[in-house]
């Protein structure tokens, strides 16, 4: 956009890079530190050395002595399904709100906003009881539904903004071709909405992947825990097993970062449309 201002003085250029390098270091360092800590023997976890007796023992412990892979599988399942469903229902909702004027639309928009204002932390007990009544405790489904309520309001809001940016003529051409609104949505609009869907997917995934409070309240027993819940077993008030904790953190961060790598190309475009028009 700003290529017209391409002539930058060397000094400004140095300043730009210096600032960005500084900011990048701050952004990356804490994560890097967790990684470095995970390579130190557990007993040196809380030291300030960058390297000390580098070892993979913490990872070995994680693999051999804990149910890490079970937790990982549970998390992957829950986050995966949450992402799929989250994307789908956010998209349909966003599309409906963007294209149709129907009774209940404004209240729905407000509901989507208000839901985000809800202090979810204090809903744990009521939701626990609700899940108990529905028989969904200790079941991935229970967590998936809960995560959807956290992720979908924002995503639907964003998708609405995104659809607003897609010319309505496309819908009309679909109608001319004899497609019903579902067909138009599915065949014509959705393919155009990829960037928006990528952001939605990313957001839903991150929400489900890193959530702690609900997963540790709803799930019990080694074989049912998610990663976030499993990690809680390492560090409590009276024990702190930082070695495996950091190793697990690294392994948790990796899929999120990979997912992010795929999504990030679309992130800017998707967010823009969503947030600008939202």
């Amino acid at each position: 956009m700003s290529s017209q201002r391409g002539k930058r003085s060397p000094l400004a250029s140095v300043g730009l890079h210096a600032t960005l390098i500084g900011a990048s270091v701050i952004a990356v360092f804490p994560v890097l530190w967790v990684f470095l800590t995970s390579l130190k023997p557990a007993k040196y976890a809380i030291t300030t050395d960058f390297f000390k007796d580098t070892t993979l023992d913490n990872y070995r412990y994680l693999v051999d002595k804990t149910s890490f892979f079970t937790w990982f599988g549970n998390s992957a399942l829950i986050a995966g399904v949450t992402t799929l469903l989250g994307v789908f229902i956010s998209a349909t909702t966003g599309y409906a709100v963007s294209r149709f004027k129907f009774p209940g639309m404004r209240p729905l928009m407000w509901t989507l906003l208000i839901t985000q204002m809800f202090p979810m932390a204090i809903l744990i007990v009521p939701l626990y009881n609700l899940m108990g009544q529905l028989g969904l405790l200790n079941q991935p489904v229970g967590l998936i539904i809960t995560y959807l309520t956290i992720a979908v309001p924002f995503c639907a809001w964003m998708m609405k903004g995104f659809f607003d940016g897609i010319p309505v003529e496309i819908d009309e051409s679909g109608r001319v071709d004899g497609l019903n609104p579902f067909g138009t949505f599915w065949r014509l609009i959705l393919p155009l909405a990829k960037p928006g869907l990528a952001v939605t997917a990313f957001y839903s995934f991150i929400t489900a992947w890193g959530e702690v409070a609900y997963s540790s309240a709803f799930m019990v027993g080694d074989e049912n825990l998610t990663l976030a819940g499993g990690l809680q077993t390492f560090v409590t008030q009276y024990t702190a097993n930082w070695g495996p904790m950091t190793a697990a953190s690294v392994l948790i961060a990796v899929p999120a970062a990979v997912f992010f790598l795929f999504a990030q190309k679309h992130l800017v475009a998707g967010m823009t449309a969503g947030a600008t028009k939202g």
């Binding site: 007990v125 626990y128 009881n129 899940m131 108990g132 009544q133 028989g135 405790l137 200790n138 540790s216 309240a217 019990v220 027993g221 080694d222 809680q232 077993t233 409590t236 008030q237 009276y238 024990t239």
Partner: peptide, 20 residues
């Protein structure tokens, strides 16, 4: 095995709802 840290809350949740 329920980690000691959140056991009190978990037990209360489970006992009060009766499920699982």
């Amino acid at each position: 095995n329920v980690p000691y840290g959140d056991a009190q809350n978990k037990i209360k949740n489970a006992f009060s709802s009766g499920s699982d």
